[in-house]
Design a protein around this nucleic acid. Structure first.
Lengths: 343, 343
DNA sequence: CTGAAAGCGCTTACAG
DNA sequence: CTGAAAGCGCTTACAG
């Protein structure tokens, strides 16, 4: 049942039906009502494939992707891009494309988002690292009805924003459950956050909160020791912390970020063993330590999936006029040596 | 870059280009070579969306789905169908449809697959429960170049078959790792398989093998006790097994099938506590026990994803002429109370 | 306010 | 062996 049959039933031309469907001006109220009635009666839905066939060349859907600058060889922020690339490949024929922008601090985030606004995009995929700047972006975008999807991290913003991310507090609880399951109520726990000049990333803090919340709800009676370090290659364990490792009690470390391998490198240097470790992210170094048994659990944030879903959801919103919100909770995937897949 | 530009460059009509692309007869060797050369030079790829637009009405892609009969209110075999339905919804506009068939034993499997062969399908999605009958199906299908995807269970078959399933032996290893992590080297383990009149399902056996293999590779020095029961609602724990539960040692149960809740109902009847349990499948009853803490881990086979991927892969093979094999390893998803999502 | 026509990229039946 | 034309369902610029 297509536009043509609707037109026949309504005794109008397909052009008129099209105008009604797209709420374009130039249709008398009377014919509009007549056409809408028939559309409803026959349960017509637009064939979006056919629709995009025409528009794929004339009216591209352009997505601006603004993510942190990737400097390392391996960088977390390449992963959402892989998912975005995959989605674009699937949607290429339907006229969807993306341009990439990057930022390294709040200033460049601001300038790049202004640049994006000058160009003519249909949607933005970015991350909400900077509250004020993200709010600015949101308020500008809402005036143009430009959908924005924030990946990775959720912070509270003024307007209704869309987030595709893992619930970090819940992920912290999962980490707590896993370590507590292995180590029980008497162990000591060490939380290691990553800090930079701006402080500790909100994801790390949310994970820490979740971890502690979970542990507090058990019959736990050990010590939880929280620390934040610059987890670059020059990281060394401070002396007071070396003391911590000397306790004969069962010991667990919760690393709230992707740098488990940096911590483990240090543990090895000091020949510290018998510590259970839960970390995040499947980078090459972490995977090697998971395989060697030095990391017990890794939590996967599925960054590729986040990017992939962002593009797909933008497409569905714009093309299929799917007005459900674009939020998406990413499952907290528990990875051990035995269920690690390299597919 | 489309068929039209290719035609211009080759000084032929678009009809001729189309004939070359689809290897249809009626093209002189000379023009064929000329057209193929240009196609290669410009890196032309068919716009499958446009292609399907025409074919969606005239040349449907018809998939036969042959799965076990669902009798219970909740039934595992409804789940792959949900995934299939989701995929069909996405591909509806492109002219993909499925018909459902069911079987209850090897005889009905055979008769239904014969029925499917009489009708004119482009692909089959089913399960390989019966070796001989599955081999028959495969050999008939290969004559017609009809792709067959087997879900859920992998068995060794004569011809190259396609499987979308979790590696059951590996899943058993994951279960072993999880229980061993909680209980250590001195615990006793109980394996509970589900049996029916035909014996124990191959999935259960593969999982058991994986579990035992894993445990044997650790410094384990407890007892592993393997059992098979009809795990229907009339299940009761036999007396000799009640003895097993009286041991003061740490105890773990590995239920190699979806019936953890049946086992737990019995444990509760006998007021047996302090047993750690790993099971399979996110049915309503299992989820309730996961939430109450009576199940520690559930492994998800993602049956919806299996069905979804099967349809998508069939579509890509037929439409995009993607000739990579259709096998797909489903990740071994570890579910605990804290990462259970109802989305 | 409305319709007829051309076109998106591909497929197919028909004509020569 | 090859081409011209109609059509898949929708969109759009043009004419009236």
């Amino acid at each position: 049942m297509g536009i043509k049959q609707i037109a026949e039933l309504a005794n109008v031309s397909i052009g008129t039906v099209d105008r009604v469907i797209h709420k374009r001006p130039g249709v008398s109220k009377k014919t509009e009502i007549k056409v809408l009635k028939i559309i409803k009666e026959v349960g017509y839905t637009k064939n979006t494939t056919a629709s995009r066939l025409k528009l794929a060349s004339s009216k591209k859907i352009k997505i601006a992707v603004l993510l942190p600058k990737t400097k390392d060889r391996w960088n977390y922020w390449k992963l959402p891009k892989e998912g975005i690339t995959k989605a674009l490949l699937e949607l290429k024929e339907l006229g969807v494309l993306a341009d990439y922008f990057d930022f390294s601090d709040s200033n460049t985030f601001k300038s790049k988002s202004e640049e994006i606004f000058k160009l003519d995009y249909n949607a933005i995929i970015t991350v909400a690292f900077f509250k004020e700047e993200s709010n600015n972006l949101l308020s500008k975008a809402s005036k143009r009805e430009l959908p924005i999807i924030f990946l990775d991290t959720e912070i509270s913003l003024d307007k209704n924003a869309f987030f595709i991310r893992q619930n970090s507090e819940q992920a912290g609880k999962v980490a707590g459950k896993l370590l507590h399951g292995l180590l029980g109520n008497t162990a000591n726990y060490l939380i290691i956050n990553k800090r930079n000049d701006q402080g500790v990333h909100v994801n790390n803090l949310q994970r820490e909160t979740g971890f502690i919340t979970f542990i507090k709800e058990t019959k736990y009676k050990g010590q939880i020791n929280s620390n934040s370090f610059f987890l670059d290659t020059s990281f060394t364990i401070p002396d007071n912390l070396l003391e911590w490792f000397k306790s004969p009690k069962p010991k667990g470390i919760f690393i709230t970020n992707s740098k488990s391998h940096i911590v483990i490198n240090e543990l090895k240097k000091h020949q510290i063993k018998n510590v259970f470790i839960v970390g995040f992210d499947l980078n090459k170094e972490n995977i090697a330590y998971l395989k060697s048994g030095e990391i017990n659990f890794l939590i996967n944030q599925k960054p590729e999936l986040q990017g992939y879903l962002a593009v797909k959801k933008i497409f569905n919103r714009i093309v299929k006029e799917d007005n459900t919100n674009l939020n998406q909770n990413i499952p907290i995937e528990i990875i051990i040596k035995e269920n690690l897949t390299t597919s």
